[in-house]
């Protein structure tokens, strides 16, 4: 019987890390601009193919750029003279490019990735088994505890909760947190019994062993290759343009 398996996304994770490292390493404005340009072109292509992601992507980029504005105001602007300093402008530009590049690349490469995909990808890249099991268990518990938290919130709100009175809000939030912790510990006790009852030892292998590298789908290799190519092209083009 064939089952639909979600593709292993480890190569995309590598691609994201590649962009992060390259962007953090590159200091020349030209290199960063070229990389960002390539990322923008890719995003336009991707969004034309899957337009339903565009709202989320644009909104995320806007939020990130609010922080970029903060950087311009604190790094580039000299408040005493109310003018922009040249060195400040250079640094702020570099940071703006870098932040936008990494955020955009992450959004593009990681679309549609679930928490479990992340666990499998990390495990495929050599995440220690114990950490992988902890990650997998945590993902499940977030779902379970999240349901409990919603019930706690409803119960607390049902008791004539008035958000305008600040001290009361703080008390209520503290109650939420305390209940969350209590429920978490009670669940932990029962989960420990469940582990023991099923005969699972301390670090049960909760994730299937990762697919061997040679069985990874071609399309994933293309993503990585494309990203690497874009990075190398940008660096090379920047060098050439600088020399000319």
């Amino acid at each position: 019987m064939s089952h639909h398996h979600r593709p292993d996304r480890r190569l995309r994770l590598v691609a994201v890390l590649l962009v992060s490292v390259a962007a953090s390493f590159a200091s020349s404005t030209l290199t960063l601009s070229l990389m960002l340009a390539l990322a923008l072109i890719s995003s336009v292509i991707l969004l034309s193919v899957r337009p339903n992601n565009s709202f989320r992507l644009i909104r995320r980029m806007l939020v990130v750029n609010m922080f970029v504005v903060l950087i311009w105001l604190t790094v580039a602007l000299d408040w005493r003279s109310m003018t922009f300093t040249p060195s400040g402008i250079t640094l702020a530009t570099q940071l703006s490019l870098r932040i936008n590049l990494i955020t955009l690349a992450s959004l593009l490469l990681l679309t549609g990735m679930t928490a479990l995909d992340l666990a499998r990808a990390a495990s495929g890249l050599g995440l220690p088994r114990a950490l992988g099991s902890l990650l997998t268990m945590s993902i499940r518990q977030i779902a379970l505890l999240g349901e409990t938290q919603q019930k706690i919130q409803l119960a607390i709100r049902a008791r004539a909760y008035r958000p305008r009175i600040h001290w009361h809000t703080i008390r209520v939030s503290a109650q939420q947190v305390a209940w969350l912790i209590i429920h978490a510990l009670l669940r932990a006790q029962r989960t420990e019994l469940g582990l023991k009852a099923r005969g699972l030892d301390t670090f049960p292998v909760l994730l299937r062993p990762a697919q061997p590298w040679r069985l990874l789908p071609r399309s994933e290799w293309y993503f990585l290759a494309g990203t690497a190519l874009a990075v190398i092209t940008a660096i090379a083009a920047a060098e050439i343009l600088k020399r000319s």
Binding site: S138, L144, G146, Q149, A184, E192
Partner: peptide
């Protein structure tokens, strides 16, 4: 075996 579930649950707590 005792602290693994506690750790997982607290990862959930911190997340939430």
């Amino acid at each position: 075996t005792r602290t693994l579930p506690i750790a997982a649950l607290f990862a959930a707590v911190f997340f939430l």
